[in-house]
Design a protein around this nucleic acid. Structure first.
Lengths: 242, 242
DNA sequence: TCAATAGTGTCTTTGAGACACTATCCG
DNA sequence: CGGATAGTGTCTCAAAGACACTATTGA
């Protein structure tokens, strides 16, 4: 029988490595994109992968994720949430690596990338056109991240994280459509958003070919006014390790 | 700048320990209970804690969770799902320990416990009457587990995992009430359950003081007939690391 | 005035909740 | 019969969806 955590002698067991991987989403030209890095070394040399790295002994998991995120994109203070922890024994051929995956949502108007020392490239890819198979089990991490994103869109204000500071209601609608992969009724969308009272008129207008657009910003600090978006019935966000 | 995962030299970094903790729920005398073990050694000697242990290098996280579960309860083949990963640097005074927490639901009719070598006791506690403060950050792990359980009850068939093989509709209603902490309307409950077509009449009846009860079993293999329970509007299951 | 885009009103259907009613047993 | 428990029917109200309508601009 295995000894349990209660009489632990720190030096006694072999320890796995622990990494944090961050699936970073953004919206570009009205399409959902994900940030990938191209690996320079074995294993999966040349393959694209989800950015990540080892945790330091003195930081929390979330701090590690924010550090990775900033190293790749220079972005701070964005939405970040823990996704799932992947720990299949052979997922990394070098050694036992347990990876705590996070999702980050980066606003559409921020996009400076930094190629890290050990990658040959960093790029945004539309989620519908990925560059072949990803390294390690990153295909399934990404798939699970997308599921979670879709599922959370339906009952939170997550979508706002992807928009620039100021936007129109139809742009917001378009994000929902992008991510949910389905058309939404314009009238019903207007109604729902207005009823939810999560938007603040900026007084700005944007002129174009037709009638000018009213621009809003997201109303932060709505206090406890918790609110629920709901666009469809289905909701499945159980996650199974493969 | 930290080196990233791509040029990893296995021996180069200090590694954290990784444990799996399993929050095990069951239903006893119509009340939700959780399994706790009493610690024999430093730290938190004498405190109650969520059962858990170190992962082996050759097992998946889920296998480790199932192993722990079986060591404590002798139970196999129960519902198990990953909850969240806790990794604050000082959560364990001995060394850096990252803990992947799971939730397990154990059917009401199975209850043999095994006191592990390193605990002085193992016991079921009603979630409403816990034995003071738990060890480590286990209070917050348990709180998050309860939130998740409540939230998932509202749109999945999770509740069935807590029932014995055969049960009545009113017993099912009572589980929902226990976990959601609120009364449900009998008529509406009947309607919803019937409409959902997740039950199978066993042909059995149970006699008591009044009209006999029809007994059902959960209809497994409903194919793709995914279905949604929904009892209230609210749904918040975001999790923040403290 | 027309094309183009933004935004509103309204009817129908669905489903949740409240609650009163009926059913079947024991004594 | 009456008390006890199981189970059903039905009314109301609110929200979701479909879809037709109006509004405001530039060319």
């Amino acid at each position: 029988m295995t000894e349990n955590a209660q009489t632990y002698d720190a030096s006694k067991y072999e320890r796995p490595s622990v990494t944090v991987d961050v699936v970073i989403f953004t919206l570009q030209t009205n399409e959902l994109h994900v940030l990938l890095v191209q690996r320079k070394n074995w294993p999966y040399e040349g393959c694209w992968a989800i950015p990540g790295g080892f945790i330091n002994m003195d930081e929390t998991l979330e701090q590690a994720a924010r550090r990775e995120l900033e190293e790749e994109t220079g972005v701070r203070d964005v939405y970040l949430e823990q996704l799932y922890t992947f720990g299949a024994p052979q997922r990394d051929p070098r050694t036992r690596v347990i990876s705590v995956a996070y999702i980050a949502l980066v606003s559409a108007d921020i996009q400076q990338l930094r190629v890290s020392d050990e990658s040959t490239a960093v790029r945004w890819f539309p989620v519908s056109r990925l560059p072949g198979q990803l390294a390690f089990d990153h295909d399934s991490i990404l798939a699970i991240a997308l599921d979670r994103l879709r599922s959370k869109m339906e009952y939170t204000t997550l979508a706002f994280q992807l928009l620039p500071e100021v936007f129109s209601i139809l742009e917001l609608k378009s994000i929902y459509e992008q991510i949910l992969g389905e058309e939404l009724d314009k009238g019903n969308f207007y109604r729902k958003i207005k009823d939810a009272r999560v938007l603040e008129d900026t007084g700005l207008r944007r002129e174009g070919r037709g009638r000018p657009t009213v621009l809003y910003r997201f109303r932060r600090n709505r206090g406890e006014e918790q609110f629920v978006f709901r666009w469809r019935e289905s909701r499945v966000d159980a996650v199974e390790e493969s």
